[in-house]
Design a binder for these strands. Structure first.
Lengths: 228, 228
DNA sequence: GTTGCGCCTTGACTTAAGTCAAACTTCAGT
DNA sequence: ACTGAAGTTTGACTTAAGTCAAGGCGCAAC
């Protein structure tokens, strides 16, 4: 598929005139990252941003003593690294490919040039950043105001919501990574999953988790109830 | 001062043509909020955003059992509530006036209309949102990867940095609020301030904190060292 | 198959930070 | 100046979650 068609199909670029798609295609670069490869590290100069064509990307920070907080795990067709481009500084977190991941790369300077000429594109980006802000706000809320069981309950419900509220969740991340997403460590996650299973809120089987008691789990997520 | 001049002086609106300032003035509303008054509560429909003319505003969330996480404490001439406008939903947090606070209010619909016509304005907003995102990223990092002493150390250094690296910090928030900003509670904050004073890192006196050992405090903030 | 290496789980222990309660200080309002 | 409310400090206690260490499971490579 040629670059213009790919770009025309990306949600971020909906509503643009065809010639704008062509212009975007002119500045975009196709790049391939293999599993474990690093897109950028915290502190790197932000020279552009990426859009995932397929694969999975992890955005994260490490503490000096090695604990990892994962901010997002992203899939096609999501963009990442876009915020740093507009504050014109460096990346505040790191990004690596979890699997083979082809992306489009948009150089910062050229891209902001385009935005200057196209308010629709600007509004798209504004919408995107707002959404990111909202997600981060929720993350802060979870980390600061909720205990691990509540965070886990919220996470499970969220995964199930993504899957049309079906009670069966196929984990798409390792439990190690899940711990990183929830701001905790694998041991703690393991223990809490066990407790939830003991109280018949969920049933776990390898990579599959089944929600048995959605109401109770919801109360847990909202802090209205605790694991006993 | 008339509305157009006020608007022309706001950092967020720098670089606009004079007629754009006038248009902005046409949609802006002056509003006065007294101490404790609520701008909006979490979940409220986002009908517009605000710019502080003077005073102080607290952006925060409450947990079901009453703990408060403060996201920002803002002063003139900072805007707030802007992100919710572009994701077109509701406010993800609440905002109240800490003191008498006059603001400008910009209705969402009219404002996005202006952005559609002025890419400079759009770029300003993009820069603003990016900066917010960056600050939130730091907050997440602090909450998830650092202990309270490290967060406090970082906060003190940040305050001193704002004040040209002078070692004397005049607290502009109550210690209760400071605890809320750091994601902890007043008791814990009090104890850690005491420990820092015992180790001669700082000296406290009512609303004044003096940094005695910047190097050690920096190491603490970066997790290279701990309070003994 | 068996070897080895992540991933995951479990137990015993430690620790940071929260809870509860009491007392003291500061400050605003009458 | 007095009163009361809010802010702050301190102590004793509890608890959630992290650390450390060991062992089991599952999968891939040889």
């Amino acid at each position: 598929m040629d670059m213009t068609s790919i770009i025309a199909g990306l949600p971020l670029f909906q509503g643009l005139a065809p010639h704008q798609n062509a212009t975007l295609a002119g500045i975009a670069q196709r790049r391939y990252y293999s599993k474990g490869q690093i897109f950028f590290s915290e502190g790197d100069n932000a020279d552009g941003f990426y859009i995932i064509l397929s694969g999975r990307v992890k955005i994260f920070k490490l503490s000096p003593d090695g604990k990892e907080q994962i901010f997002h795990i992203l899939e096609a067709p999501e963009p990442f690294g876009e915020a740093a481009v507009f504050s014109g500084e460096n990346f505040p977190a790191s990004a690596t490919a979890l699997v083979e991941t082809p992306v489009l790369f948009f150089p910062a300077g050229k891209f902001t040039g385009l935005i200057r000429q196209d308010p629709i594109l600007a509004l798209s980006m504004l919408g995107l950043l707002s959404l990111r802000l909202r997600k981060l706000t929720t993350l802060v809320e979870n980390l600061s105001l909720k205990e691990v069981p509540a965070r886990l309950a919220a996470y499970l419900l969220y995964q199930s919501r993504d899957n049309e509220h079906k009670p069966v969740i196929e984990l798409d991340v390792s439990k190690n990574q899940m711990a990183g997403l929830l701001g905790t460590i694998p041991e703690t996650l393991s223990r809490i999953l066990k407790r939830m299973a003991e109280e018949n809120l969920i049933k776990t089987d390898a990579r599959t988790i089944t929600i048995l008691n959605r109401k109770h789990l919801t109360d847990l997520a909202e802090g209205l109830r605790k694991l006993s």
